[in-house]
Design a protein around this nucleic acid. Structure first.
Lengths: 148, 148
DNA sequence: TATTGTTATACTCTATAACTATA
DNA sequence: TATAGTTATAGAGTATAACAATA
């Protein structure tokens, strides 16, 4: 039983990805775009590298992500006056409106779909277990992941 | 708190993938190869399409997966006498030995690394929650995933 | 006609290297 | 000399279309 946990993790993630990508697709977005929009909304205007590093995205990939969001009028590239090498990527009012009125509810709904088989108590428990799996780690790759 | 579950799922999966890919990498394999080897070991010789469909892999991709495993001497392509269009992909004795004596323990160890933050009871609970998330689903995409 | 396996091909995603402008 | 952003390019990974052999 415990040996099948790895297959279950894979399948659960496939399901998760399918649900979330399908949810943002009608907006012409990928889940990555939603993550970036949310990061700007909650943390304020940031440089592309900040956005990239925070979410494990390459900085060259972030260029095209921001390109796409700018093309849709959801974010705006403004120079950071304190360091003119950096942008301060900010949400436009359209971006903020779309995120708060449409995208956020859609994503909440998608999460609800994903968690549908679980009761509220179980969802909270699942969240706590995930949090510990992600954050309560000793030395990284202590046993399974040898560096090359 | 519940709204961050989606980010946690993503991060947990990234961690999972990193640990498992690193674990099989010294054998010159990808986690996909391990999954296929395990499927043959537990279910017996199968056609490439069976292997592909069962694990959501494209049949053309399965060709190169089996190519690689055959090149390593871990599996063998034999024709299915009942339907000569199909192969019966079987483990070689080397493949079975590697899987049972080396790969399986390595993957158990990798899973242990992934689950390290959890107690045995919590691991069992996590497994059960995952199982229900994957298997206890009503109509697929009932709310978050509209068909195109 | 449909299915299995195969090949060639195209497409997406991401990473690398090299450039500019700023620090 | 190092960093932020950009571009061009190359490399995975995967999917699509067309084909031969078999059902």
């Amino acid at each position: 039983m415990s040996s099948s946990t790895s297959l279950l993790v894979s399948k659960a993630n496939d399901l998760f990805v399918e649900i979330f990508e399908s949810a943002v697709e009608p907006f012409g977005l990928r889940s990555k775009d939603f993550i970036v929009l949310t990061a700007i909304d909650s943390m304020g205007p940031q440089s592309q590298q900040q956005l990239a590093r925070t979410h494990g995205i390459d900085r060259t990939t972030m260029v095209s992500v921001v390109d796409g969001l700018e093309r849709l009028g959801l974010v705006q590239r403004a120079r950071n006056p304190d360091d003119r090498r950096k942008y301060a990527i900010a949400l436009t009012s359209e971006g903020q409106a779309l995120l708060r009125h449409d995208l956020a509810p859609t994503m909440t709904n998608a999460l609800d779909t994903f968690l549908a088989p679980l009761t509220p108590d179980e969802r909270e428990l699942f969240n706590k277990l995930l949090w510990r799996l992600v954050h309560e780690r000793g030395p990284v790759g202590s046993s399974g992941a040898a560096a090359s």
